[in-house]
Amino acid sequence: MLQFLFKRFLQAVVVMLIISLLSFSIKDKLGDPLREMTGMSVSVEEREKLREQMGLNDPFLVQYGRFLKGAVQGDLGTSYFHKLPAMTVILKKLPATLELTFAASLIIIFLSIPLGVFAAIKPKHWFSKVIMAVSVIGISVPVFLTALALIYIFSVKLGWMPSFGRGEVVHVFGYWKTNFLTTDGIMHIIMPAIALSSIMLPLFIRLVRAEMLEELSSEYVKFARAKGLSPMKVYFKHALKNTMLPVITVGGVQIGIMVAYTILTESVFQWPGMGFMFLEAVNRSDIPLIVAYIMFVGFLFVVVNTIVDLLYGFINPTVNLFGKSK
């Protein structure tokens, strides 16, 4: 276990170094931060002085070295716009994004597994055909279009749902305020979560269906039936657990991608999360914040994948993560 985590840690360090180099190297291409910060009234001399003070005239490697030194100590720079450490800004926005991703994941898990399993068990049923047809549409329609359609139908026309913001939130601790404790908060999260899950859900339904179909034709399923087990037990105990192995692997990567997709969803719904913050940072050429965001999302990917690999090891006894002899 320790050995596995140690190996993972080394891998993570390498991954983070590569991400930091990439994100840092594009910083000069994002526009001039001073123009955004100072406005028109500041003279060229003063700007030049400020530039020198901020170290923007130093060679790339010197700047990168300074950045790395700070990053090791947990300091990813100070946001030009917010005048706060970039990490603090991100951590303030993080709960909103995580809650949105969590809600979307719940929708995906609780819909994709039953629908996918149904489509696999009864492939010729009319409902299975509907599931498959709708899932093709779901994959092809972009997230922002789904989001706009939801707002148009449920907020503008029917007036059932709030169309923007987080609504009423309850403070838990630190920067964490939650949507899940008030009715208003839950009403506000439903549509963004549906929009965010709309592109992953069809993918997962199809994945669950394909894996389940394969497991159903396997020999041990036939043997389980020959043992006299009921069809429900054969499907949901024997076949489903094996189906979940590849689904978990893919799922780990997809959760990371979903965090990235929040940029679109959050900006359509004015959701005050990391994605929305990132878009604003790009508009303001708030380079430290952009770099910090990219680093942070990369870090999330590494953490989620490590957790998924651990989970996989617990479910699948043939995988020996911990190097212990059997």
Binding site: S218, E219, Y220, F223, A226, N316, P317
Partner: peptide, 18 residues
């Protein structure tokens, strides 16, 4: 299972690995 037992060809695949 209760009145007719079955043994299949390949013991590598007839048991559920999980």
């Amino acid at each position: 299972g209760s009145r007719i037992g079955f043994i299949f060809q390949d013991p590598m695949t007839s048991l559920n690995p999980l």
